[in-house]
Amino acid sequence: MIHVSDLSKSFTLHNQGGAVIPVMAGAALSVEPGECVGLTGASGAGKSTLMRMVYGNYLAAAGSIRVGDLDVAQAEPREIIVLRRRTLGYVSQFLRVVPRVPTIEVVAEPLLVLGVARDEARDRAAALLARLNIPERLWGLSPTTFSGGEQQRVNIARGFVHTYPALLLDEPTASLDAANREVVLQLIGEAKARGAAILGIFHDEGARVRVCDRLVDVTHFTPGAA
């Protein structure tokens, strides 16, 4: 489902004397449907960079990133837009939403974009929020006012509300209590069971052990270290 090969990346900082910082070279991995692959490596080794490149958020310098049969490294923006709407979900560590939009709407939006009827989208959003223990009285409020853990759960709900065939998870269990952590791990397990290909970063070692089928150490992709 996700096939990365010979991927490299560097940043050119024009406003700092044109410094070129190579951050990745020769990256390769693949994630099959129903499989969860965890990225490991020290902070700054490039785990998030790799995830962002798969999502099309960072541009690749060279190599290919196939998600389904689209090469994200070569794709037109509009193809990536469609890929993100239908195929590739992303749970980041940060919640970025229009202020003042109610939580239930924030979670339902990915479905509305796909043309799912409003009532059905809200029902599915509500079910997930309930499962993630967001009190119903908060559903009508904007998540921008929530605590870090609540925001994180809203983000997860948004990422799981549509049955994406491929999912990117950036620290999905960080800042969660034991009960909610358990819910998230169940959600991941269910996604795998329905055939989703998942690429994730888990600092939570217990979680990693439980959901990941394989691990890929991105340190091998650090230029000069490989």
Partner: peptide, 19 residues
């Protein structure tokens, strides 16, 4: 250019297929 969408979901509406 060919639309390279491989995933067809019965719930998805027509308008988001690549034009």
């Amino acid at each position: 250019m060919n639309a390279r969408i491989f995933y067809e979901n019965s719930e998805t509406s027509q308008e988001f297929r690549c034009a």
